[in-house]
Write a protein that binds this DNA or RNA. Structure first.
Lengths: 114, 114
DNA sequence: CTTTCATATGAATCTCTATTCATATGATAC
DNA sequence: GTATCATATGAATAGAGATTCATATGAAAG
């Protein structure tokens, strides 16, 4: 903490531009949702059409329980929502930011460097 | 895995639109980098000016070692880079997508719902 | 060359979290 | 009602990862 060379000026400048700790924390939590391959796959699978739980499980070749747990996380974060249809729960994207955020990441990965 | 109701058609449609497993995995890894408050703060602090390690540590009120570890992760991912200046290492953003991706998350959090 | 400063790094710890297993809930069919 | 299907959920496990501590490296000053 006690450093010898001074950078208090730079720190002051940057400090004044930094968002609140709460917002920065929320930002981290938001991106954490996208930071898991299973959740990314689930979100991507809902890009074009709504799907029931077992369709997603079959598509991703994963257990139904694992998918349900992740869907709950995404639902709590309001990134997906669902509606009942008979015995099945149909999930769909609930936030258009999902597309743009994943799209930006996609661009970053597929874009030629330059 | 063996479900009784059929959704093979929906699965086929979605399957054909899904990116490769490798890309989806890379996407998850990319967002994982933004899914940590410390790394978000580091990246944000580099938005306006380059900074040395101990300036970041002082700014975030964290130990120098913790910052160094996270900077290594960000550097390995090519999101930041650094240059020597005497005894200090000056870090700076190495990828403009950092701004846009964080910006999208910021918009999502601060935008009025509607 | 020795000392000091700035940073990097390896190991250990601790926390967080994704998955699995077992089971509960909720809805339809019979 | 009972049986079956679809989903949700709690507990346990296991793996990943963030921080700390101690120490190593690397550069400049003396």
């Amino acid at each position: 903490m006690a450093h010898k060379h001074d950078h208090s000026q730079a720190i002051e400048e940057v400090s004044s531009l930094m968002p609140s700790d709460e917002l920065l924390c929320d930002l981290g939590d938001l991106f954490k949702l996208f930071g898991d391959t299973t959740r990314i796959k689930i979100l991507y699978s809902l890009f074009e059409s709504e799907l029931c739980v077992c369709a997603i499980a079959e598509l991703l070749k994963m257990e139904q329980s694992a998918i349900s747990h992740q869907l709950k996380i995404l639902k709590d974060a309001k990134l997906v929502a669902c509606r009942r249809s008979g015995r099945t729960n149909i999930y769909f994207l609930a936030d258009e930011h999902v597309r743009t955020i994943i799209g930006q990441g996609y661009e970053h990965l597929t874009e030629d460097r330059g």
